[in-house]
């Protein structure tokens, strides 16, 4: 495993913020990888790192590194990981906390104005509502 460095005080504080927003204690994760195996988005091959690695980054306080990876932004909160987690961690909430730390700085992940007209005309409203809830501030 790649050496990720020791945690600074500032990193520890941001990591604590993740626990606060998610209501989960990421320290409880034992890195078994059940979440990664259960994740249908990881199965598509589109995620740069699996959810287990995100949990590891958070445990080490590397919240910023976790936030710039696509993994949390790809999560659709299907809760397949939560069902399998032997520590009963609600991973979709952890992914949401990672997204929130970015979104709360008033950053759009999906800009509503950039969604193609054809998609807006044909996609179900629920797609736009859900995407803007999870991917815009």
């Amino acid at each position: 495993m790649q050496f990720l460095g020791t945690r600074s005080a500032a990193a520890a504080e941001t990591a604590h913020k993740i626990n606060e927003i998610s209501g989960q204690n990421v320290g409880r994760c034992m890195q078994c990888g059940q979440c990664s195996g259960a994740c249908p988005m990881f199965a598509t091959g589109s995620l740069p790192v699996p959810p287990r690695r995100i949990m590891h980054l958070l445990q080490l306080g590397h919240v910023e590194r976790a936030a710039v990876l696509e993994t949390a932004w790809c999560c659709a909160a299907c809760h397949a990981c939560e069902v399998r987690c032997p520590r009963s961690l609600d991973l979709p909430k952890v992914m949401e906390a990672i997204r929130q730390l970015t979104l709360r700085r008033n950053v759009d992940f999906v800009a509503p104005g950039a969604v193609p007209r054809a998609v807006l005309a044909s996609a179900p409203p629920i797609a736009m509502v859900a995407a803007f809830r999870r991917l815009t501030p």
């Binding site: 598509t44 932004w73 299907c78 736009m128």
Partner: peptide, 10 residues
């Protein structure tokens, strides 16, 4: 999961 609303983001 079918990817849901990620059809807009990914």
């Amino acid at each position: 999961c079918c990817g849901a609303y990620q059809i807009l983001g990914h």
